[in-house]
Simulated assay, not measured.
Amino acid sequence: MQSLLTPAYILHSRPYRDTSALVDLLTLHHGVVRGVWRGARKPRSGVSPQPFVPLLVVLAGRGELKTVAQAETAGAYLPLQGDALFSGLYLNELLVRLLAPGDPQTLIFAAYQSALQALADRTHVEPVLRRFEWQLLDVLGYGFSLTEDASGASVVAEGVYVWLAEEGLMRLTDVRPGDARPGLSGAGLLAMADSDWTAPYALRTAKSLMRQALAIHLGDRPLISRQLFSSPGSTFKGDRS
Results as ranks from 00 to 15, higher is better:
71 A>W: 03
90 Y>W: 13
43 P>F: 07
29 H>A: 13
152 G>P: 13
223 L>A: 02
84 A>H: 06
240 R>P: 12
59 L>W: 08
151 S>V: 07
3 S>M: 07
106 T>A: 14
159 G>N: 12
134 W>C: 07
59 L>S: 09
182 P>F: 02
127 P>R: 12
35 G>Q: 05
87 S>K: 09
139 V>G: 04
213 A>P: 07
55 L>R: 06
149 D>M: 13
90 Y>L: 15
67 T>I: 08
133 E>N: 08
91 L>K: 10
225 S>K: 14
161 Y>S: 14
223 L>H: 02
226 R>T: 06
120 A>E: 01
73 T>M: 13
61 G>D: 12
91 L>P: 04
174 D>G: 13
146 L>M: 05
203 L>N: 03
236 F>V: 03
145 S>G: 06
12 H>L: 13
195 S>I: 12
131 R>Y: 05
145 S>T: 02
116 L>S: 04
147 T>C: 10
84 A>W: 02
218 L>S: 03
14 R>E: 09
15 P>N: 15
107 L>S: 12
155 V>Q: 13
224 I>C: 10
183 G>L: 04
59 L>Q: 03
23 V>R: 14
226 R>A: 10
160 V>P: 01
29 H>D: 15
204 R>K: 15
180 A>E: 02
193 A>Q: 02
181 R>C: 08
218 L>A: 03
9 Y>W: 08
187 A>H: 10
210 M>W: 06
171 R>Q: 13
231 S>L: 06
47 V>I: 12
195 S>T: 15
3 S>P: 00
2 Q>M: 10
171 R>A: 13
108 I>T: 05
149 D>V: 10
103 D>E: 15
91 L>Y: 02
196 D>S: 06
109 F>C: 00
240 R>M: 08
7 P>V: 11
42 K>L: 09
104 P>F: 09
200 P>Y: 07
184 L>I: 00
180 A>H: 05
202 A>H: 14
79 P>R: 11
103 D>W: 12
42 K>Q: 05
43 P>W: 10
134 W>I: 08
189 L>E: 10
122 R>S: 09
40 A>M: 08
42 K>W: 00
17 R>V: 00
220 D>W: 06
202 A>M: 12
29 H>F: 02
216 I>F: 12
38 R>Q: 05
105 Q>M: 14
100 A>K: 14
209 L>G: 00
154 S>Y: 05
24 D>E: 09
109 F>M: 11
51 P>L: 07
90 Y>A: 14
188 G>F: 07
204 R>L: 09
55 L>K: 14
221 R>P: 00
166 E>G: 01
41 R>I: 04
62 R>K: 14
154 S>R: 15
50 Q>D: 06
71 A>M: 10
64 E>F: 03
170 M>L: 11
171 R>I: 03
198 T>M: 12
205 T>H: 11
181 R>F: 05
16 Y>T: 09
217 H>T: 10
78 L>E: 14
221 R>H: 04
103 D>G: 07
124 H>L: 03
82 G>Y: 02
60 A>E: 01
